[in-house]
Write a protein that binds this DNA or RNA. Structure first.
Lengths: 392, 392
DNA sequence: TTTTGTTAGTGAAACGATTTACTAAATCGT
DNA sequence: ACGATTTAGTAAATCGTTTCACTAACAAAA
């Protein structure tokens, strides 16, 4: 007769305590085994541990192991095709795979992630989902991540300061391996790798993916200048938008370089955070109300350009005959608006894609900070019908 | 002098093995304590167990407990404000909270979720992110989920059969508590609660959130009929779109009811899965190529309506003077297109919001299937400039 | 004096995987 | 015939929490 180890511990500990009462705090060695347990268990057969399959619940590795009469260890080795599984005969492997299929075994990702300290999950911060911009970038992010079998949690901060502080924290609590911020200020310490799409601050631990704004401004201002425009109005982005300042400055530089510095009186800034053309419409209305003269408008984005066109037309001004309008982004609707928008194309999908690839790279390389802080993408200009030669 | 328990175990086990070699399998009792360890430790002060904070790593409950000289149990009770924490004096509680703040303790969500069997995470299936439709629905979903402190994993299936089968599986492996499918066929067994936005199949375990399509068709066809239109062309949705069939059928019913059944020769179907107006443009081109006569077009959505308008204008047909165009959805651009689109407004944000709320409800109520299989939302018609009285 | 209750905690067992370090039995090499 | 190696596995520790079931020490009640 063999003795169950637990029983032995129990007996030994009892003896110990009897002979050396001062070692009482070793009690925990036997406390978990009650006397009746120790007595009733003859140690021969492993008892039926209510293996009757939890109701609708999913089957765990232990369940499957019990079902197959093997240990969880063996199953794990085989199912993950571990190098140590070489010694397991093909027949047993087949039995395991068949059993897994039969019981519809699905490994629990939480448990696995906890053990291997890897979640294959990243967090994505966006201002809002339905603004077109974020959705396009996200599309690119998703495309790169899914290739690497990563998933992502999305969180919208709506430009609220409390959320800008809280969301990164809870994403990190949820063990995301990295964060992609889209057009979002970094209000947290980057404890994990962060890639910022359209970020312009140099922050330790943050890689910026940006458009080459200088080039974009050259293309835009150059195009209008070449068409003869000298009095160019500008629709500046909302204060919360990451690109607002750099776009404004590069436009100014490009115009100044050509000897036609932008007139502050011809500048209006977008107000409000609606993703509708309405904000561009209002901005243009207020510019027109000032009664200033201009022959072209460089809008912050296509959405606001569309709103601006509406405002111009309501004033009886024809686009492009009386006023040329230049957009930015090249959203899907740009080509089909009437007039079709001339615009600076910003490859948002590629920027999201690049951001995700950079992040994965940093995760894979253990984040040796040899990588550059900023990577940039080139814009192109798409000439359509909303701009034309100045007619004066 | 007190003796460190580990040392004691070590010594006792050695003695045991010496005196009772047949108990060798109890070796594990001392194996983890090396001789030098046991020797060098005089047992007086709890040694600094390399608590020097793992490099950049995060601090666990155990770390914090060690730091405070308390047990993880106590910390857990206090930090989670468990009812059992009443017996812990306020001073100790303060010490714990201060320590947590000081060491920047963040509970590990994986571990917690594993233990309490609750992830506060759901999965969202969409065809593609940048199609406008999905983004709007997602916005509503997010808004409802964030109120309940839920997060979500997004996955795009791109209408691919393999992904339609695989994505739900991996989402479930990742322990999402439920799934929201947006304009997506259910190709999996709903083992967890599922809500389908724009789903029309009655499936056990699936709640459908739909637009009242009959009403939408009445509004649309009724509007055109009242303007005198009798020959109405229709742009039917892509085959993969959940709403395609029901929209087509309800339109037909509404037209037939008014004695002007839709002429099959005046129907074109969208081809291709680009989210650009281009598909509507091509569809209208091919309809125009047939040389048939019609005075109005009822488009599947605003995007295709915009494309169709471009095609009509290229043929020299004015909208709405020669042809009225009716859209569907009321996307942001609809109001600012020229001509501004008359359209059937589909409250996508609300539909996403409702879907999320229904799902949370089912999760909270243990999913007693007393809830209705389908909930519907009412459309409205927004009359703008793209439709007008027939001019013949 | 025993019983009962309160206070201030603690130990160990979950949760469901992976991984390290073993073992018994069979086979091989000499 | 003996040790070494291979084969076919297994036990237990681990990841970081929560929670159940305890306890020691002291006070109040019976």
């Amino acid at each position: 007769m063999t003795i169950c180890p637990n029983t032995e511990i129990f007996i030994i500990a009892r003896l110990l305590k009897f002979n050396f009462p001062e070692l009482g705090h070793l009690e925990f060695l036997y406390r978990s085994v009650t006397i009746s347990d120790a007595m009733s268990n003859n140690g021969d057969a492993p008892r039926d541990k209510k293996v009757t399959a939890k109701p609708g619940d999913s089957v765990s590795l232990k369940d499957l192991a019990l079902h197959l009469g093997l240990s969880p260890t063996t199953l794990s080795l085989v199912l993950n095709d571990s190098p140590q599984a070489v010694s397991i005969p093909a027949e047993t492997k087949k039995r395991i795979f068949d059993g897994a299929r039969e019981l519809n075994y699905r490994p629990n990702y939480l448990a696995r992630s906890l053990r291997v300290q890897k979640t294959n999950t990243i967090g994505v911060l966006v201002p809002e989902l339905s603004d077109g911009y974020s959705a396009m970038v996200l599309n690119g992010v998703e495309s790169a991540l899914s290739k690497a079998e990563y998933f992502y949690l999305t969180a919208s901060h709506l430009h609220r300061e409390d959320l800008l502080e809280k969301l990164p924290r809870v994403l990190i609590e949820r063990q995301v391996e990295g964060i992609i911020a889209v057009d979002t200020p970094i209000r947290f310490k980057p404890l994990i790798p962060v890639v910022n799409v359209s970020g312009h601050d140099e922050i330790d631990g943050v890689t910026n993916v940006v458009l080459n704004h200088q080039h974009a401004a050259e293309l835009g201002i150059g195009h209008l200048y070449n068409l003869g425009h000298r009095r160019i109005a500008a629709i500046k982005g909302q204060a919360f938008s990451s690109d607002t300042i750099v776009r404004w400055e590069t436009m100014n530089d490009a115009a100044t370089k050509r000897g036609i510095p932008l007139d502050p009186a011809l500048m209006v800034q977008l107000q409000g955070d609606s993703p509708s053309p309405e904000v561009g419409y209002s901005a243009m209305k207020s510019l027109l109300a000032k009664g200033v003269h201009f022959t072209a408008v460089f809008a912050f984005n296509d959405i606001s350009a569309i709103g601006a066109i509406r405002a111009l037309e309501e004033m009886g001004l024809r686009v492009p005959a009386d006023v040329s309008v230049l957009g930015f982004d090249d959203i899907y609707a740009a080509a089909f608006h009437s007039p079709a928008l001339t615009t600076i194309r910003q490859p948002l999908f590629e920027m999201g894609n690049l951001a995700a690839r950079k992040l994965l790279e940093r995760l894979a390389n253990g984040d040796e900070s040899g990588s550059p802080k900023t990577v940039s993408i080139e814009p192109t200009i798409v000439v359509r019908q909303s701009t034309s030669r100045v007619s004066e």
